[in-house]
Design a protein around this nucleic acid. Structure first.
Lengths: 153, 153
DNA sequence: GGTGAAAGACATCCCAC
DNA sequence: GTGGGATGTCTTTCACC
């Protein structure tokens, strides 16, 4: 099922990860391929799931969510029921843009986008009222040095 | 400069954050607007920087970077020179997909994408050879419960 | 804000190699 | 697998209500 990618495929992906609005003509010129061969490779990678989609990126600061919090969570409930509830809760909260179950002494890390600190507090209350955690702490992002959707290739 | 967004603009953004490949016709139907008015709004939001770009999303597991590490860094060097070097280093390392300066007792958090644990170790060595940090610890993502580029609207 | 129309650019598919 | 050419769809810009 997994497509084997050659250097040309990777070049196409690198280009599309930076800008998905460019035409197939432009990409084919960059990777030294005909419009057609290039188009077929892109379609194949969409089909095989290498390319999962194309999305528009929105400036969080300009739509009222300039603050990002990293939330570190420890829990003592590790049963399946608790985990299912926890996951459902996280998926239903739009402020949560990332949620990861971790190795080590951290159990979960969340990335949360909110308007300001009071909005985070409001989110915090909604989260903790729906699920029980033994330890939760938040750090706020002061500066985004790097934040990219581009996977290293 | 900041565009004031009404509910229709937000509906357009919500749709484009999920799928940027759909035609203006489809979007205009969803938000109950003419093709033309819809197109003008999208262009205006691109112009004003609300929409920062359109990118293709690539499945990390299918291109050889299935492992994500969260790296927590503490430092005792807070001078401008060190910070500039640190930032340049992070930006030049493609494995680093996110780098954030934080509040609280964490100084920096990195999101790093690599092939496996040995690849992380290799990255770790390259990083620490180029910049000095007082404390660095990594946790690996076992499960991605949620990971979205969509800003809450 | 809406309509319609017209230009060109573009994606898409079929063919031959 | 590659490239060429035909076709229809979409974007983009116009003038106008």
């Amino acid at each position: 099922m997994t497509h084997i990618l050659d250097e040309t495929d990777r070049a196409i992906l690198r280009s599309l990860q930076i800008d998905a609005a460019q035409s197939v003509d432009d990409i084919s010129a960059k990777v030294h391929l005909s419009r057609n061969a290039c188009w077929r490779r892109i379609k194949a990678m969409e089909q095989s799931g290498v390319i999962t989609g194309r999305v528009a990126l929105v400036d969080p600061a300009k739509v009222g969510a300039p603050l990002t919090a990293m939330v570190l969570i420890r829990t003592n409930a590790h049963d399946a029921k608790w985990m299912a509830e926890f996951q459902t809760t996280l998926r239903s909260l739009p402020e949560v843009v990332g949620a990861y179950r971790m190795t080590g002494d951290l159990d979960y890390v969340l990335r949360v986008r909110v308007a300001d600190v009071p909005a985070y507090d409001n989110f915090y209350k909604r989260l903790t009222s729906r699920i029980s955690v033994s330890d939760i702490s938040a750090s706020f992002v002061m500066e985004e040095i790097k934040d990219t959707t581009a996977v290293p290739l």
